[in-house]
């Protein structure tokens, strides 16, 4: 039971005696300062089993890819050609690849890149998409312009766009941030810039419908400013498509990155990512099935955990569901 339940008046159906604060115990609770909204969100979130497990799994994956390399010290790029194509063993828990590199270390190194790219690109796409979507849906004057912009971006062919971005920005970014960080920024930007459009369209559609609802009218009638209106009333109500876009967005970003590596536009070849590991292993599907298993599993688990996390967050943030 949360304290909130006791506070909710039972619409006059319950006997007055129970609704009124009686003994010492309930009084103590009653005098406690009302818990904050975020506290309630957290309470709801931790009671959501899927969200909790999803969150824990996601945390484990993140810790594994970021802290794992400190414990498992084999270098992901070290080649031990005599030990190539080995199956799982104690020295190489996930086996080795065709050049004798340790797959476990490569999975961690690849995960670091993939998870970072996935999350950053997703956040970028989500931020851009939600912003454009809300602006277009809410302000009628911006709608035409922003939606034509969305059409334009939807129509642009991804590959030539990337080639142009590589051509224009690779060298300056390399000089400013070093080759690895530079290419990271470039790829995150490329994926983010080319994948915000569906989110924008979806959010706009929802906003168009929501802003005609009565509660918006009510809010407006009491003089709510546009900024407050968007943050307090519109955004919370379009959260669920945004959350779905977020979960799907991470998967899309990880997979797009692998397609880019495959086309020679991604990270340098000695720079493993999950998508690339999966792609490289596909040719060896019959000989060494375990090689496709690891990256495939890692991508799926990440996406699943983010999905449950998103489900839980959505439920926790929805005041109508919260507390039931």
């Amino acid at each position: 039971m949360t304290d909130k339940d006791r506070l909710v008046p039972d619409e006059g159906l319950a006997p007055a005696s129970t609704a009124l604060p009686g003994g010492a115990g309930p009084l103590e609770e009653f005098t406690k300062p009302p818990s904050s909204q975020w506290r309630e969100v957290w309470d709801q979130f931790k009671n959501h089993k899927g969200a909790l497990y999803g969150g824990i799994l996601f945390l484990v994956i993140v810790l594994w890819v970021y802290l794992g390399p400190f414990l498992w010290t084999i270098d992901a790029t070290h080649i031990d050609i005599r030990a190539r194509n080995q199956g799982p063993s104690l020295t190489h828990p996930f086996g080795t690849d065709q050049l004798g590199r340790d797959t476990f270390a490569r999975m961690m190194a690849g995960g670091k890149t993939s998870v970072s790219v996935g999350i950053t690109a997703m956040l970028l796409a989500l931020g851009l998409g939600s912003f454009v979507g809300v602006m277009a849906g809410y302000f009628r004057r911006l709608d035409g312009l922003l939606m034509r912009l969305t059409d334009l971006f939807l129509a642009l062919p991804l590959l030539p766009l990337l080639l142009v971005m590589m051509l224009l920005f690779r060298d300056p970014l390399n000089a400013a941030f070093g080759p690895e960080r530079g290419i990271f920024i470039l790829i995150v930007a490329a994926i983010g810039v080319t994948s915000w459009m569906p989110t924008a369209r979806i959010v706009r559609g929802d906003v168009l419908a929501i802003k005609e609802r009565e509660f918006i009218l009510a809010a407006r009638s009491i003089g709510t400013t546009n900024a407050k209106m968007i943050l307090r009333h519109i955004l919370p109500n379009v959260l669920s498509p945004i959350m779905v876009s977020a979960t799907l967005g991470i998967a899309t970003a990880i997979i797009t990155e692998s397609a880019l590596s495959f086309l020679g536009l991604g990270f340098p070849p000695d720079f493993p990512t999950w998508g690339r590991l999966l792609f490289d292993a596909t040719d060896y599907l019959q000989q060494y099935p375990e090689r496709v298993l690891w990256p495939g599993l890692a991508i799926s688990l990440t996406v699943l955990s983010v999905n449950y996390l998103g489900d839980g967050l959505r439920d926790a943030l929805d005041p109508r569901i919260r507390g039931r």
């Binding site: 086309l263 020679g264 340098p268 070849p269």
Partner: peptide
């Protein structure tokens, strides 16, 4: 794919003799 494997191998051999290489692959 084969060229990238060669790059990785040769990079390692050259690093053993004290020459460091940065790898780059370009869309063909």
């Amino acid at each position: 794919a084969v060229r990238q494997d060669f790059q990785a191998l040769i990079k390692q051999w050259w690093s053993e003799i004290g020459i460091e290489s940065e790898l780059r692959n370009v869309n063909s």
